[in-house]
Amino acid sequence: MTPAETLINSHRLSREEYAALLIKAEDEGTRELLKTEAVRLRRKYYGNKVFTRGLIEFTNYCKNDCYYCGIRCGNQKAERYRLTEEEILECCREGDKLGFRTFVLQGGEDAWFTDERMEKIIRRIKREFPDCAVTLSIGEKSYESYRKFREAGADRYLLRHETADEEHYRMLHPENMYLSKRKQCLYNLKALGYQTGAGFMVGSPGQTLETLAADLEFLQELKPQMVGIGPFIPHHGTKFANEKAGSVSLTLFLLSIIRIMLPKVLLPATTALGTVDPRGREKGLEAGANVVMPNLSPLRNRKQYDLYDNKICTGDEAAECRTCLARRVASVGYRLADERGDALE
């Protein structure tokens, strides 16, 4: 039995088998086999629904100096901003009018937003929009901080592990950051009852089929409810400015693999996919994804949340153009769902 057939039958492989499967990423027969099964599974569990997440990028200050990131603390040319509590709530109000039932508060690791400030913001959102889910994506915190946010009403947490290989992690991060800490944060989030999301960049500098196999093995072990992957895109203000962007086709192949490995997972067709390929998000949905994350941030700040170059910030990416997004989703046989879109257990 081939690795693809084994994955379809058992929903899991060894690291060596994942590496062997990834060698087949450009084999049309293997791609179609996995894509067909991935679509079957996402339709089995989620029908034709595509869930929307209203993304609010509320601060681009960050204490970390991750080598690939445009808002790293070492980038002196970044135009920094923070949204006020009221501005965040206004983003939610606009999103609520547009039919969004999940708000994603995403930012750098910004010490100004203390636990107390975050708790207050979460409680206000949950009080004003009790039927909506709150997702946080604000990096590595202590178990106690995560507990406070959970008790305040946070439902989900996104924390990409970026790579499960220690040597590769060192290539992408400064010495004061540790893969072991990142993994422990993910396990803490799961223990506290968050719907937890991990993920990685596809094609990041130094990545190999073996490191990707390690990522898949880690996801298989962690069993997150959400997985966010997208092609690596270089930023001009980083040491990786001249590296090439990650492959769309490999990203799509991995989306299908992850859907089969974790059939009930919430799997976004990411902004990065839409940045590298004008039809990237549609292709992501066709490969097994079932989530899109339009931007609810104030228009004046969208270009400042500059993780990588040429990020799409207007047009369809603007949450206000929900009609355009609905049309894009419908073009590949799905429909936007006006609901929280929780992960199935």
Rank of each mutant, 00 (worst) to 15 (best):
V292W: 08
T238H: 04
S249K: 10
R335L: 09
L267F: 06
I257K: 00
G288T: 02
A272G: 07
S247I: 04
G280S: 14
N301R: 08
N290I: 02
R322Y: 09
V265T: 09
D309M: 06
T238W: 08
T251P: 02
R281V: 00
L262R: 00
Y334V: 06
I312F: 03
T251W: 01
L262Y: 09
R279F: 15
R279V: 09
E286M: 15
K239V: 10
L285N: 06
N290M: 05
F253I: 02
Y308T: 04
K311P: 11
G237V: 06
F240R: 06
A269S: 15
T271I: 15
K264H: 14
I258K: 01
I257T: 07
I257Y: 05
D306I: 01
A272K: 06
V276K: 14
S249N: 14
T314S: 15
N301I: 01
G280C: 10
G284Y: 02
E243R: 00
V292Q: 09
K311L: 12
A241G: 03
A287L: 07
L252C: 02
Y305P: 10
G280H: 08
A287W: 04
S331K: 09
K283G: 04
L296M: 11
G274R: 09
I258T: 00
I312H: 05
L267I: 01
A319M: 13
V291E: 04
V248Q: 14
N242P: 00
P268Q: 04
R322M: 10
R340C: 12
L307I: 15
G237A: 14
R300S: 11
L273H: 05
C313Q: 06
D316I: 11
G280L: 10
Y305W: 09
A326Q: 14
R300Q: 12
T238N: 04
T271S: 14
P263R: 05
I312K: 15
R327Q: 15
A337F: 02
V291G: 03
K239I: 12
C313R: 10
G284F: 03
G333W: 07
V291H: 05
Y334K: 11
K311G: 11
Y305H: 08
I312N: 13
T314P: 05
S247V: 03
V276D: 11
P263Y: 05
